[in-house]
C-alpha cells in the first residue's frame, strides 16, 4: 500500500499506524455516557469508501485522514487531520 502523505509524499504503508474510522467525533464532555459508548465502540465499518486515521509515525509524525476504499484499497485522498474534517 502506498499512502500519499501530504507532507512527505507517497510512502509505503509500513511507515504508518492505523487507527480506524475517522468519522466518530469525540462528544462534548457533558454529552453523557451513551454518546461516549457510541463514539468509542460503535463503527460503521463500511465496505467501500471510508475516511480513516493513519499516523505517519515513521515519517512526519502527523495524523492523516485518508480516504480509502476497503474493497479495493484504492486511496483517493489524504490530508493532515489537523484542520480537516473527516
Amino acid at each position: 500500500m502506498r499512502i500519499p502523505c501530504p507532507y512527505c509524499g507517497e510512502r509505503d504503508g509500513a511507515e504508518f499506524t492505523y487507527c480506524g474510522d475517522a468519522s466518530p467525533v469525540r462528544p462534548a464532555a457533558d454529552a453523557g455516557e451513551a454518546a461516549f459508548v457510541d463514539y468509542v465502540y460503535m463503527r460503521s465499518n463500511p465496505a467501500g469508501e471510508i475516511s480513516e486515521h493513519w499516523y505517519h509515525g515513521q515519517g512526519c509524525r502527523n495524523w492523516l485522514i485518508v480516504k480509502r476504499n476497503t474493497r479495493t484499497h484504492v486511496i483517493s485522498a489524504a490530508m493532515l487531520a489537523k484542520g480537516s474534517a473527516p
Binding site: T17, C19, R26, H53, Y55, G57, R61, N62, W63, L80, A81, K82, G83
Partner: peptide, 16 residues
C-alpha cells in the same frame, strides 16, 4: 512510543 502517538493524536485530532 504509544504515548507519543497518543499525545500527537490528542493535539492534532482531538484538540487542534
Amino acid at each position: 512510543v504509544k504515548i507519543m502517538q497518543h499525545v500527537d493524536y490528542c493535539r492534532q485530532v482531538l484538540w487542534p
